[in-house]
Nucleic acid binder design. Structure first.
Lengths: 138, 138
DNA sequence: CATATTTATCATATTATCATGATAAAAGCA
DNA sequence: TGCTTTTATCATGATAATATGATAAATATG
């Protein structure tokens, strides 16, 4: 798939948190159950998001995770970046270290437009954008 | 990166063969040297391409690999498909088994356009298309 | 303070991808 | 036929991604 499994979990978890945003944090167990995702693994993933400033975590009773950023200010790229996605993917299709208009691989001319669209999708789409189209379960 | 390492090797090897198309087959050793790629691994990858009908292989003295398809009829998707790329990647961004206009995930509305561009790039771009922009090494 | 709850972290297992090395099988050619 | 060259295949190892299970640390609350 396009995203790593971990990146996909991260995205879905954040969307779940956005949909269930309230005063109180949501626990990993609930999210894992809702998304049908391994709980311990998700726990580690959410912790990475917390360290990245995307989520806020609180421990102890009635603890859990919450969004730390307003949905309309939270781009998908920011959610995925701790898991090494996106910016890597804009790279040269043929794996060259440098590939630009000046020093182009065979694919560059045709690929760059697609790559830029892909990149800007993740940079510009926010969680709020997705909440709108989201009448259905994540 | 967007392609698997193996997929990238495959693409580069095919482009190399297209650029060095002649009467005589090209040996793995030469391709591996030119692309700076592990020879035994490339050998296996080229064999997969041969089984997929993309390349023709001949053994023995003055054997090697050749394109089995005319460059202008050889889409990138066909080169990559033995390595499980592309069609997987068009799938739902959030990993849903079914995700369509009728049953859409939260991302579907915004994602489908990008996904379609990505998919059609690989389906419609041919080796011949890339040979043109390719004055520089692969 | 004691306890229950929850995240944080560690140790380890599983799986897929990437890679290496060795050998078998085919094919040309002296 | 026998030798050399080359692909085909097998066995194995290395590494990273994914996942599981157990324990530690923090915190609210009685």
């Amino acid at each position: 798939m396009l995203l790593s499994q971990t990146g996909e979990y991260a995205l879905r978890a954040v969307l779940y948190l956005a949909a269930h945003a309230g005063e109180r944090p949501v626990q990993v167990a609930e999210i894992a159950r809702a998304l049908d995702v391994p709980q311990n693994y998700l726990s580690k993933t959410l912790h990475q998001l917390a360290r990245a400033g995307v989520l806020a975590s609180t421990r102890g009773k009635s603890g859990g995770f919450q969004l730390a950023v307003a949905p309309d200010r939270l781009a998908l790229a920011r959610i995925l970046s701790p898991f090494g996605d996106i910016e890597d993917r804009r790279r040269c299709l043929l794996g060259r270290a440098v590939c630009s208009d000046r020093s182009a691989c065979a694919a560059h001319g045709r690929w760059k437009e697609v790559a830029e669209q892909l990149s800007s999708f993740f940079r510009e789409t926010t969680v709020a954008d997705l909440q709108q189209g989201a009448a259905l379960p994540v």
